[in-house]
Design a protein around this nucleic acid. Structure first.
Length: 618
DNA sequence: GCCGTTTTCGGCCCGACTGTTTTCAGTCG
């Protein structure tokens, strides 16, 4: 049933990053000299593992370094405090040898053992691990037999046809590798929203603090919250463009300056992300911000409407273009610019020329939706604990969720078919349910844990637990974790069958995609949405910035079909809750409102939504 | 390299999938 869409106020509400980011910890201010980060230490261990494997080292030693990388990555405390000093507590999961290496990295910024290992092997060989389908054995074979030492050399060898002739390789393998190299080239200049958000915040924060900056905002695809961006854009208004440009070009996060002029400075950040700054006078600011926020398609449609009035618009001004044109109103901000043309201010997330113009027309339009905001979330589902592959205990997850102001948290650890994730069998699951019930007695009445599972959808669409077990849970997330390569019709039948089970409350990450890494499995999403609507199954919007699945492009349609959304962080540790920011961004981009998102419901109402499917089938 | 109601050696995550193979190796989750 179509629902009435409440128009949003003309003035910008929560549109800027910092207003939407109360959950996300502010990045630490750059210190000098910069302390090595957890992720960098983890990368060193990961690379050591790879180099040792290529060197033919004991595979269990290799794994020890891989485990060490994971342990460091997941470690919640301060690295330096954990390893430096007389009675340093150490890092859980790290033994003596690796703890010493962390200490060396933290105190000197380098690791002698690692440097020497790297000298022994060709510099480009590590990048070969980034090619899916290549592991240490194949890379070693390529290196030893074909002198392949880099991705470029591999491509040469593939095109020369010599790889397919190696023992253990073949025509099909060679084709797959070539395809993987091509795909890698395509995504070389692309970044996930999650990869640039911290940079964007830091740069925004720095610019805002500068005394010569009058107004500043991120722009471009980052402000529109595209799941993939090419670069970061900022627009600043100032009376001193040279001073601000110089300040920007010399920020600690800047690796190098690519171009430098009076109105534009282009840099490459240390993270590899290109970042542009536009400098304008304050009167030009709304035009520049609107122009550089895009999208191109949105702006093209805008220009056509401007031209129809006999006006002209560029990134500096709105002006009369014809002698008989109506006078141009004074524009002070974006709301004024949209208002001048008879439109409500359009949230950046919706600026994709996908119906926002029709909705925003003040005179006759249906009104823009009042988009869901982070503050509307009352809880979330699909979180993991140490019982499966999570890094924090049930209690720690519950307490962190309560800290964030949530009223409830759904626990959905993996089921047994996900063995690699230490999935729970029925016995362990029921023990966890008992643990949750006991903890709830302690947390009531203002907080509640819901006992669930992320139950594997098996190849034939049946579930990894029998109905008698599922019936004892508060809710069930059903997800695909294997058999990605089924033909589309079969994959679709599989998901539809799973959604037909009355215990399946919601469908997890609907396509299984990993952004910039792996396309989703072939599935007919229109049919999935139809089945979700017919069965009353909630569809998850997996908020992990690696997934953002179901994609925002489908949500408008799903909403109109009456499907409800659950914005889930798929959190594997307490810090994972922060990913909800990305989920809300994607939901907004998909035109979702508070009433479309099931985890905006307060405790006392959300239970009904979780139980709705069972109720109607009984 | 890590770990131990198996404590100083000997094991260490299992199964599906793919492609190369005629019975299995490598990769991935």
């Amino acid at each position: 049933m179509p629902r009435r869409v409440a128009p949003i106020p003309a003035a910008p509400s929560a549109s800027t990053a910092e207003e939407l980011l109360p959950l996300r910890a502010k990045p630490a201010p750059p210190t000098s000299p910069r302390e090595i980060t957890r992720d960098e230490v983890a990368d060193v261990f990961e690379n050591i593992a790879r180099l040792l494997a290529l060197d033919g080292e004991n595979p269990f030693k290799v794994r020890a370094y891989q485990n060490g990388a994971r342990a460091v990555e997941m470690f919640a405390g301060n690295l330096r405090e954990a390893v430096v000093g007389e009675d340093a507590p150490g890092i859980p999961g790290l033994g003596e040898a690796l703890a010493l290496k962390v200490k060396e990295l933290v105190t000197t910024g380098r690791l002698d053992f690692y440097e020497r290992l790297r000298e022994r092997l060709p510099a480009g060989i590590l990048e070969l691990f980034e090619i899916p389908g290549l592991g240490d054995k194949k890379i070693k074979a390529l290196h030893d037999q074909l002198k392949v030492t880099s991705v470029a050399k591999l491509e040469e060898a593939l095109r020369a046809g010599v790889v397919a002739k190696l023992p253990g390789f073949g025509e099909k393998t060679a084709q797959n590798l070539l395809a993987a190299i091509e795909r890698r080239k395509e995504v070389a200049d692309l970044f996930r929203l999650g990869d640039v958000a911290a940079d964007a915040l830091a740069v925004h924060e720095a610019l805002r603090g500068h005394p010569e900056v009058i107004r500043v905002s991120p722009a471009g695809s980052f402000l529109r919250r595209k799941e993939i961006v090419h670069d970061l854009d900022f627009v600043v208004s100032t009376r001193a463009p040279e001073t601000v440009g110089e300040f920007f070009a010399t920020l600690p996060t800047v690796r190098r300056v690519e171009a430098r002029g009076p109105t534009k400075v282009s840099v490459r950040l240390a993270s590899g992300v290109p970042c542009d700054l536009r400098l304008v006078a304050d009167a030009e600011y709304p035009f520049a911000l609107q122009h550089f926020t895009g999208s191109k398609e949105h702006n093209l449609a805008f220009r056509q409407r401007v031209l129809a009035r006999g006006w002209t618009l560029n990134e500096y001004r709105l002006a009369a273009d014809k002698p008989d044109a109506a006078p141009v109103p004074k524009v002070r901000d974006e709301a004024g610019l949209y208002g001048a043309l008879g439109f409500a201010w359009i949230p950046p997330e919706l600026r994709e020329n996908a119906g926002e113009w029709e909705a925003a027309a003040l005179a006759e339009g249906p009104g823009l939706p009042r988009l869901v905001e982070l503050e509307n979330l009352r809880g979330t589902f699909h979180c993991h604990t140490t019982a499966s592959d999570g890094r924090d205990s049930l209690r720690a997850m519950a307490e962190a969720a309560r800290e964030l102001g949530f009223q409830y948290l759904g626990i959905a650890d993996h089921s047994k078919a996900s063995f690699q994730a230490n999935g729970l069998d029925a016995g362990r699951l029921l023990a966890q349910v008992a643990e949750i019930r006991a903890l709830n007695a302690e947390l009531a009445p203002d907080f509640r844990l819901f006992a669930g599972t992320e139950c594997d959808i098996l190849k034939d669409g049946s579930l990894d637990f029998p109905d008698e077990i599922l019936a004892q849970l508060d809710y069930v997330v059903a997800s695909v974790h294997a058999s990605f390569t089924l033909p589309e019709a079969e994959q679709t039948r599989r998901l539809v069958r799973a959604m037909g089970n009355p215990h399946v409350t919601m469908l997890g990450h609907a396509t299984g995609r990993l952004l910039l890494t792996r396309p989703g499995y072939a599935v007919d999403l229109a049919a999935i949405i139809e089945a979700a609507a017919a069965t009353g199954t909630i569809i998850e919007l997996n908020a992990s910035p690696r997934r953002l699945d179901l994609d925002w492009r489908w949500w408008h349609r799903a909403r109109d079909a009456g499907v409800r959304c659950a914005i889930n962080p798929d959190a594997h540790r307490t810090a994972g809750f922060q990913d909800l920011w990305f989920g809300v961004a994607a939901a907004r981009k998909g035109w979702l409102r508070r009433e479309d998102v099931v985890n905006c419901l307060p405790l006392g109402e959300v239970e009904t939504a979780l139980g709705a499917k069972r109720t109607r089938s009984s």
